[in-house]
Design a protein around this nucleic acid. Structure first.
Lengths: 193, 193, 193, 193
DNA sequence: CATGAATGAGGGTTCATTCAT
DNA sequence: AATGAATGAACCCTCATTCAT
């Protein structure tokens, strides 16, 4: 029992190691430019071993995705939304989103990269993204109902916010001053009074 | 003279055909998943011929990019910016940008895809993107000077606009009602008055 | 332990087999006219396997050279030079050199062939050749010092000897009577007394 | 008539140009590493034109060989052999041979290169070489009959001479002092008196 | 005489994957 | 659990050669 448990733990560790190594390499060079041998070398194991843990390269890819789901964290963040004024919370959420995309930047690259060339990927990505937007839309509509935001199409706002943050990351732009400016623009508008 | 011109014209035609075929395939499957043979087959041509027209696969890629450069059109659009009120022109520009990304959606996929995994591509693409943003920033600062927009960081606004439109395209969302809402949000803000 | 050793031994054997097969084919048709597939077929092996053992075709070439380096044997021969009179030793050395070029005739063909069209090969080969000549020059100068040969430019003699033997091999001439005649000519000259 | 003659002359010129260009390139990089396109580019013509003048690449190769036969010159040289003392003439012949191999060094490279990998080439080369040796043997036997050289196997001497000179060229060694030393060694021997 | 578009076989090489050990 | 030898298909690219113009 104990031994088998130890074995299992060891196996789990090895599995995670392979996932992490693969994530790094995939992010650096893209999935196709990363060979199984590259991964094996970087992990210090033989190429054959990878097939002991994953059916094939694609399965390894999905394992990476599954291991890093950012939705949980975002959900937690929105749960405490009510405790802050609108502007503060939006700043917080935007900053956190920006940071998250940074922490998982390699993942972001992988996902985007693959999503753009593999329809079945795109499908799975859109589901996630839809959930993110839904979270945001829910919050915004709550604020509208509370009279803190003027009545309007919340989905457009949500898309603006996500798109703007995403664009910052994609272009390598820094968080400040852009994030603050974005939120202020969004809240107050840029038209002359 | 006539003959040589005819020959040249034919060659140009063939070149364009190859570019178009490649564009389609690259967009469908990604550049790496598209083999030279795939392109040749789709064009009804021997694989070797492609190397008669393009030095290698990468050169073919850049030929695609060059053939469809949206910058010229955008520049022309901004040249007549003064003739319209702010809101009208921004709607027009956003709509045109959205449409352009649509017409060139396959191109967009290709460019994104490659940019994400090949630093030297990212470099060249950022140059283009920077020029687009500069165009927009120039316009916005003009409107600020004219007192039509309140003084603010125009670059943040430009990035919001581009990011928002891009996000629409990437998520497959329709132009309306989003574009109008986005422009209105941007101009007037979403905060309650 | 035993198993890994067996594996290693097997791998070494396979490596040597590939070297030998390649040596034969390279000698028969020249390196460029021999494809990796030719080698693989002749060895009864998949083409990819060759790249498991050698980085590329060139590396395979150098592996052939390294496996059959005649310098060690020649060095050993010259170590016992003192035990024989000049004429006997020179006959022995010439005969041994002729034999060696025969045993390695295919190698000779390969080396010459490549040396003639690839500067970087010529470079590496000249180093080897220089060492051979140096060996001979050292010996000759020793004999001059010992008063057995008249004082003269030993390098010219060394080059004559090597050139003469090489020419025999290149033209397919037999060892006898040429070698004896060559040595005698070299020692006594052909001028009438 | 005149026109056709002019045309013919022009054609002959073009033919020779192609031969010369090909000779240079073949010598530089070897025949296989030189493509028809390389030759065409260097000559400033279209690839197709080469096939107007030569059936294929091999025919072009043979045309090069035929255009540059060194035998005529050597025969002329030996015709005046009697006018000089042995040592002087042998020096002259050796020097001339060395020079010839230099002038035609590129040709030498080509011939050697191809001879080593193509049996039918080797055959043709050996015929030429045999004629060269025969020329030399005839001379040497004449000198022996005249009492200027001691009676001995002239063919061995001829092979020594040719081999020595060839080795100088192949190793890139300079003419002097080697040639003089070689002739002196050959005439007087290197043994202590 | 001259062009250069077009062919298609074959080159070296990479790589996901399998399997005996 | 782990190895690494072995496979074979596919890749990008080169090139001698042909032929309509």
């Amino acid at each position: 029992m104990t031994t088998s448990t130890k074995r299992e733990a060891q196996a789990q560790e090895r599995r995670n190691q392979l996932i992490d190594v693969a994530r790094r390499l995939f992010a650096e060079k893209g999935m196709e430019r990363t060979s199984i041998r590259d991964i094996a070398d970087a992990a210090g194991v033989a190429p054959g071993l990878i097939y002991h843990y994953f059916e094939n390269k694609d399965a390894l890819f999905w394992a990476i995705i599954e291991r890093h789901n950012p939705l949980a964290e975002m959900t937690a963040l929105f749960a405490q939304a009510e405790t802050l004024p609108v502007r503060e919370f939006m700043l917080l959420a935007a900053t956190r989103g920006y940071a998250l995309m940074g922490e998982r930047q390699d993942l972001l690259r992988i996902v985007f990269h693959e999503a753009l060339s593999r329809p079945e990927m795109l499908q799975r990505i859109r589901v996630l993204q839809q959930m993110g937007i839904a979270l945001l839309v829910g919050y915004l509509n709550g604020r509208i109902a509370a009279g803190e935001l003027r009545p309007h199409n919340a989905e457009a706002t949500a898309r603006m916010l996500v798109g703007s943050i995403l664009a910052l990351r994609l272009t390598g732009a820094p968080a400040e001053p852009y994030i603050t400016d974005i939120i202020d623009n969004l809240l107050c508008g840029v038209a002359a009074p």
